[in-house]
Design a protein around this nucleic acid. Structure first.
Length: 502
RNA sequence: GGCCUGUUCGUCUAGGGGUUAGGACACGUCCCUUUCACGGAUGAAACACGGGUUCGAUUCCCGUACAGGCUACCA
């Protein structure tokens, strides 16, 4: 049977980077085994629905290159893939479970249950407490029918049998055992007619022929309910295998990574910018911060998984090849932004100038720079060894696009002297005439000239750099001069001399 | 509180009854370079604790501690 896995996020806001990793592992597993990867939208909670969240999820998956074979926005033969569009399906199945004696009607109001929780410390609706509550197990058949006929609100709950051992063979954690006494009678169908996650999940996985459920560790406890549901429906034979992923933890402190951590630690925790309704609900994304999607994928892949060797840089195809569930670690992984930056730097370094130029172009245009693609490629070559983020090309390297804003005058003061001033005055008029205007030739001629004047290259070159870039950081001086061109180089020298030769 | 899951350098991790406990990020030093980076070399840095089992445990078992998750008509 062909492998089928799904990524099933809830559209309650921006897709967390941990969600992207879950999607990635599902994708890798599907590709590795020649199976399908589906996107299912789990929007059964109408109260938590957030407009735009679904589009965000789809756009994020596209950005990182994890294209589903089926799902909302991608078609497929097992649709609809949005649970709110499948509402009609769930009631029939819930009723079927009631008939089979694995579920029951419950009429207790949320307020009544809330009151119980208030007064009793650890109240749960389960096999021990249900006998004292209002449900089809305690009420007579007539009373139940009356309630139903009268249109009283009800939910359908899972009827957990006593003295059962529920065994799960998790692909990552091995055997996990629960006692049914510890498992509560979860609501399966809510009073509004929508299923809860638990019911919808099982029915959809069954109907969509899902073979492997790869999801976060937060789902491990409820897997006991899920197994009971498969048994209740008589679907044990086709029950998917489970793999519960370790969680991604906060960069500092305790707990799992949350959306607030982005602002708190000054780093993105979402793939894309998210602009919610309120000011508070705005979060930066990896894309807008200047990450390459390949770098994000590579970083995420290694957060909780490792290959058989010590390889660190992987294309998506290589990840597919190397991936195995057996090498997923069990413990939570701290979100390491430094490592994420390192990956991005590595990917920028490895990228060819033409491709890099296409990434820099929109950034340059946004700044109002009008330059040719050829020039952007030169900028790419000059800067790629010294940037971490895409915007660094136009920010750190702004002087390649516009005049120097400020000179590192401290360094200039230190180096400035009568001799040097004289050299610069001459350089100002002669440098542009050096032919050919090429890096190696310029370097040779300038150094020669400086020495003829009785100075050392070290006295002059740093200042030449400041004249062109304003700062002591940056690409090789003569490479910059060539990129800027002789006219611009001359202009910058002139301005530099005018500024300091007073 | 109850249930479930974890615990190797600061971080991500490899390993697994006998190893100089390996790699990567970050950090230090040096080399390259009259800049900054890149690159290269090198250094410091870890098996949570206590009991077993064993000739021998970081590795297997039990307990403790700590951490995480779940405990909604949320997912």
């Amino acid at each position: 049977m062909s492998v089928r896995v799904r990524f099933a996020p809830s559209p309650t806001g921006a897709l967390h980077i941990g969600g992207v990793r879950t999607a990635l592992y599902n994708y890798l597993f599907a590709r590795k085994h020649g199976g399908q990867f589906l996107l299912r939208i789990e929007d059964t909670d109408q109260n938590r629905f957030v407009p735009g969240a679904e589009d965000y999820i789809i756009e994020a998956l596209k950005w990182v290159g994890l294209i589903p074979d089926e799902g909302v926005g991608f078609g497929g033969d097992y649709g609809p893939y949005r649970q709110s569009d499948r509402k009609a399906i769930y009631l029939d199945y819930a009723l079927q479970l009631v008939e089979r004696g694995h579920a029951y009607y419950a009429f207790d109001t949320p307020e009544a249950l809330e009151a119980r929780r208030e007064s009793e410390d650890n109240f749960t609706y389960n096999q021990f407490t249900r006998t004292g509550l209002s449900n089809s197990l305690t009420l007579s058949a007539e009373a139940v029918q009356q309630h139903l006929d009268a249109g009283l609100p009800y939910v359908i709950r899972l009827k957990v049998a006593p003295n059962q051992e529920i065994r799960i063979h998790d692909l990552i954690r091995g055997e996990v055992v629960f006692q049914s006494a510890d498992v509560d009678d979860k609501v399966l169908l809510k009073a509004d007619g929508m299923p809860t996650y638990h019911l919808a999940n099982i029915i959809d996985d069954h109907l969509m022929k899902i073979t492997h459920v790869i999801r976060g560790e937060e789902w491990l406890p409820s897997t006991a309910h899920h197994v009971l549901l498969y048994q209740g429906f008589g679907w044990e034979d086709t029950m998917p295998q489970f793999a519960h992923l370790p969680l991604i933890m906060k960069p500092v402190g305790n707990g799992k990574l949350s959306k607030r951590d982005g602002a708190k630690f000054g780093m993105p925790v979402f793939p894309l910018n998210w602009e919610g309704a309120t000011e508070e609900d705005h979060f930066p994304g990896f894309r807008e911060a200047g990450f390459l999607p390949e770098a994000v994928v590579n970083f995420l892949a290694l957060l909780g998984w490792h290959p058989e060797n010590d390889q660190e840089i992987f294309t998506l195809e290589q990840l597919v090849e190397a991936f195995s569930v057996g090498h997923i670690s069990k413990s939570g992984a701290r979100f390491d932004y430094e490592k994420a930056k390192w990956f991005n730097q590595k990917y920028i370094q490895a990228m060819d100038a033409a491709t890099l130029a296409t990434h820099i172009q929109p950034l340059a245009e946004a700044k109002g720079y009008e330059v040719s693609v050829e020039y952007l490629q030169q900028v790419a070559v000059l800067m790629k060894e010294r940037v971490t983020f895409l915007p660094d090309f136009v920010e750190q390297g702004y002087y390649l696009f516009e005049p120097v804003r400020t000179y590192d005058s401290e360094t200039v003061q230190k180096k400035w002297s009568e001799t040097v001033a004289g050299i610069f005055v001459e350089l100002q008029s002669s440098l542009g005439n050096i032919v050919p205007f090429e890096s190696a030739n310029l370097e040779e001629k300038v150094k020669q000239f400086v020495q003829e004047k009785g100075a050392k290259p070290g006295d002059v070159l740093p200042l030449l750099r400041i004249a062109l870039a304003g700062t002591m950081k940056g690409p090789a001086v003569f490479d910059m001069a060539v990129a800027l061109g002789s006219a611009e180089t001359m202009g910058r020298l002139k301005r530099f001399v005018e500024t300091f030769n007073k």
